[in-house]
């Protein structure tokens, strides 16, 4: 067992447990994008950053890949961490605004503006599909090619892969493939509709609303008992 300090709380976990696993076990939410319990941790999206050590000698590490060690001091929501996360989400928004996962993250973390040049990428290189294909589907049909700014996901010689079984696992897990709700602000880089106290989704969609965590707004509006999920 390893004992360490998580947000001022002394906790002990089994050896080999990552900070992210420990935090989630104790109910502390750390946002992630490229992390999936069924896949190996990758540390690409950097959203799971936490601050370890005591300032001024603290540093940011990805909690999904960092194993808890004895006496470690971890803060999951310090000012530095929150600011860095918001900056990261802002950059993701500038890269791939069409993704629902990223839009939801932006709303959740109160990112309301994008100060970078707007791009419309289809991929954020989180590597989920590559790991899904290799680790869960045992196919290894897709992977990274090139490097630097020409790095992308592709198949062998960009041809139809013989290893691919069309399982669709890559599409299922891809955060960029989930199209954002076609709300009235669809042309804007930041949707933030879920931040509104009067969500426009109610007027537009009778049956389906945002799939985000309960946003109190709709409960108040409909005057019903608060539900676990406000959607469906």
């Amino acid at each position: 067992m390893v004992t360490f300090v998580l947000n001022g709380l002394e906790i002990s976990v089994e050896k080999g447990t990552t900070i992210l696993e420990a935090a989630r076990f104790y109910g502390i939410g750390i946002p992630t994008l490229c992390y999936n319990e069924a896949l190996s941790p990758y540390g690409a999206c950097r959203l799971c950053l936490v601050e370890i050590g005591v300032p001024p000698r603290s540093r940011l590490v990805t909690s999904c890949t960092y194993e808890a060690t004895e006496g470690l001091v971890v803060r999951t929501h310090s000012e530095r961490v929150v600011k860095t996360r918001q900056m990261l989400i802002e950059m993701y928004l500038a890269t791939c605004p069409s993704s629902k996962v990223i839009q939801d993250l932006a709303s959740k973390h109160h990112v309301t503006r994008v100060r970078f040049r707007q791009k419309q990428e289809e991929c954020i290189l989180c590597g989920l599909c590559v790991r899904m294909c290799e680790e869960q589907m045992q196919a290894g049909a897709i992977g990274y090619t090139g490097r630097g700014d020409s790095r992308r996901i592709s198949t062998f010689f960009d041809k139809k892969s013989e290893d691919c079984r069309f399982c669709g696992g890559c599409q299922y897990i891809c955060p960029a493939c989930q199209a954002r709700c076609q709300g009235p602000q669809e042309k804007e880089a930041v949707c933030n509709a879920c931040l509104n106290l009067a969500p426009p989704c109610l007027e537009h969609f009778d049956h389906v609303m945002c799939y985000m965590d309960p946003c109190v707004a709709c409960e108040e509006k409909s005057g019903r008992e608060p539900r676990k999920t406000c959607c469906k």
Binding site: E134, G140, A141, G143, T145, T155, F156, D163
Partner: peptide, 25 residues
């Protein structure tokens, strides 16, 4: 050549894309 890479992948037992990844890097 593509066919040699395919043969290589078979012999070292790695997915083709792994070799392609290194070759393009």
């Amino acid at each position: 050549p593509e066919d040699v890479l395919k043969e290589l992948a078979q012999k070292i037992g790695k997915p083709l894309i792994e070799i392609y990844r290194v070759a393009t890097f």
